[in-house]
């Protein structure tokens, strides 16, 4: 199979652990320069999917391409991706600046080449003043910011962000959302996994909803809400905005989609 031209493509991705299926026949097509919100309840398979797409684990079946590179080819893939996992992978003994320099060295990218971009992000995230402090003295939010800069400083084609706003205060979370939008505007594809639905609703161009190891819905946030409303699903969902007469939102659509796993549908 030739490599497709989308930023991110998956065909029949399946991952099983013994009798447990983490993801089942997952197909994805994500265009370049978009923010793709990847949603799903706990244990739905979001992190597993992200690990496969970043080459951190291998699928049991199926294939995936990231920036025209097979995800199984980690050697080629690393130049094209950035990854912020749920637990920031940082060294406590280094300072923030040393950590960023170390990450640049790992990619064999001179610090001079990436520092402008990295320090620009640090400025935006109000991290510059703490860059020369050791990471073991950082708060959760500062670790998260450092890991975000680390994942994006080399200007990757595709960035995978797993709960990027976790531990951030409202101001930092807002800045991060703006940075994510800026990344997409610069033609970087952002694959964003989060439980904070308003974030996805605000910045995602497309959304995929994973439930019970399957992709049960895909489309723009507006499309998902619209389809859920027109299907009459929102009406049956307690607590939804539709019930109270308010306008339905992505949260209502998400709850509706993930409460009926059998009725998989695509917009």
């Amino acid at each position: 199979m030739t490599a497709p031209s989308s930023a991110l493509v998956a065909r029949g991705l399946t991952k099983r652990y013994g009798d447990t299926t983490a993801i089942e026949s997952l197909d994805l097509d994500v265009d370049r320069g978009v923010v793709y919100g990847f949603l799903g309840p706990n244990g739905a398979g979001k992190t597993t999917t992200m690990h496969i797409l970043t080459g951190l684990i291998e699928p049991t079946e199926g294939e995936a391409w990231v920036a025209d590179t097979p995800s199984s080819n980690r050697r080629e893939l690393v130049d094209r991706i950035g990854h912020l996992p749920e637990e920031p992978p940082l060294y406590d003994e280094l300072t923030g600046r040393e950590q960023l320099q170390f990450a640049a060295d790992l990619r064999d990218r001179p610090w001079d080449e990436v520092s402008e971009r990295a320090l620009g992000y640090c400025d935006a995230l109000d991290l510059t003043g703490d860059l020369d402090r050791r990471i073991d003295g950082y708060s959760t939010g500062m670790c998260q910011k450092t890991a975000f800069v680390q994942a994006t400083q080399h200007d990757p084609d595709v960035v995978f962000l797993d709960e990027p706003t976790s531990g951030l205060d409202p101001r930092a979370a807002k800045t991060l959302r703006e940075l994510i939008v800026d990344l997409a505007a610069d033609d970087t594809t952002v694959f964003l996994s989060t439980h904070i639905l308003p974030v996805v609703e605000e910045i995602a161009d497309e959304v995929g909803v994973l439930h019970d190891a399957r992709l049960v819905a895909e489309g723009s946030p507006e499309e998902l809400v619209g389809d859920a409303t027109s299907d009459g699903r929102l009406g049956s969902n307690a607590g939804g905005g539709a019930e109270t007469g308010e306008e339905a939102d992505l949260e209502d659509a998400f709850l509706a989609l993930t409460s009926e796993p059998e009725a998989a549908w695509q917009s």
């Binding site: 690393v78 990854h83 790992l106």
Partner: peptide, 17 residues
């Protein structure tokens, strides 16, 4: 081990490490 997601997605070969 705690930094594996960084190391494995940043180096074309772990030889450098």
């Amino acid at each position: 081990s705690d930094q594996l997601p960084l190391l494995l997605t940043s180096t074309s070969s772990v030889g450098v490490l």
